[in-house]
């Protein structure tokens, strides 16, 4: 009897690295499954994909996925991804980052990659703290939340990742939660298809650190909270600001057409150097 394996198995480095290091109930595995299903539904081969990450829980993802991968310095995933994309524009570059990785240490890289509108898909997994190092507060930790470095409650407001990157000029900005996993598959697929800088913020529970410190219960309870406290974009448009306070708005939050950076760079080289231009396509 042949063993029946998850079909995602063909994209995983299953023999070497599994079971993975993420805690029981951590949502990063669900996001990883969504990325696999989105890529699979598009029919892309493994050799076309370049997966870049920095440091952190989320950034362990390239260790488990059998694409071309790059595991780089803390916060610098997009800096490396930009270099990869310019050197070989034919690759589909995906940058996976955690909230601290993307918005604190790599905050400048994120906003400038969005401003350039370079054709990179970035998946920002937001679990509201730095999970790997013991649950310190991150730029997305909400007000009054308890973490290892804010034991009496956080006094800073958190970032709205999607509003930030939408304002910075990203082509596609969407928010998903790991509870709404089918919706997340579709949003990641749309982001991968979109030409230009596209962002999907995936909200994920961290039951070990953030959930325990704030007494939010186990992973199941945290996912139920996501279900109860989130609304779609179409529903949110009909709600008053009072009703919307404390709610997570999910879905496609911004989508626009803008010139893409590698195209502009190639045009520039061809204009300046004429036929001598040697720009990879």
């Amino acid at each position: 009897m042949a063993a029946i394996l998850p079909y995602e198995y063909k994209y995983l480095r299953a023999k070497k690295k599994f079971p993975h290091v993420w805690c029981p109930g951590c949502g990063i595995g669900i996001v990883m499954g969504s990325i696999i299903r989105a890529i699979d539904s598009l029919g892309w081969t493994k050799n076309e994909i370049m997966l870049v990450s920095g440091i952190g829980c989320t950034s362990r993802m390239p260790v488990y996925l059998d694409f071309n991968t790059l595991h780089t310095m803390h916060g610098r995933a997009l800096a490396f991804a930009t270099g990869v994309k310019l050197a070989n524009p034919g690759l589909k570059v995906i940058a996976v980052m955690g909230d601290g990785d993307a918005l604190a240490i790599g905050g400048n890289h994120v906003i400038h990659a969005a401003r350039r509108n370079i054709d990179i898909t970035s998946i920002i997994v937001n679990n509201f703290n730095y999970g790997m190092t013991g649950g310190q507060h991150s730029p997305t930790t909400p007000m009054n939340a308890v973490t290892a470095t804010s034991p009496h409650g956080m006094i800073e407001p958190g970032f709205d990742t999607c509003a930030l990157l939408s304002a910075a000029g990203a082509s596609f900005v969407a928010r998903a939660t790991v509870y709404h996993v089918i919706e997340m598959d579709g949003l990641i697929r749309q982001a991968l298809e979109k030409k230009g800088f596209s962002v999907v913020e995936a909200l994920s529970p961290c039951p070990t650190n953030y959930g325990r410190a704030n007494r939010l219960g186990d992973a199941v309870k945290m996912m139920e909270d996501m279900r109860d406290n989130s609304v779609t974009v179409t529903k949110a448009a009909k709600m008053t600001p009072e009703e919307l306070s404390g709610k997570i708005v999910r879905g496609v939050l911004a989508e626009r057409e803008a010139p893409e950076y590698t195209d502009l760079y190639r045009e520039l080289c061809e204009r300046v150097q004429g036929k001598a231009a040697e720009v990879p396509k």
Binding site: P6, G29, V181
Partner: peptide, 14 residues
Amino acid sequence: LCARRCPDFAVTIT
């Protein structure tokens, strides 16, 4: 839904 939500890739459906 179980297979998609499993973070550990442990659930599969034929």
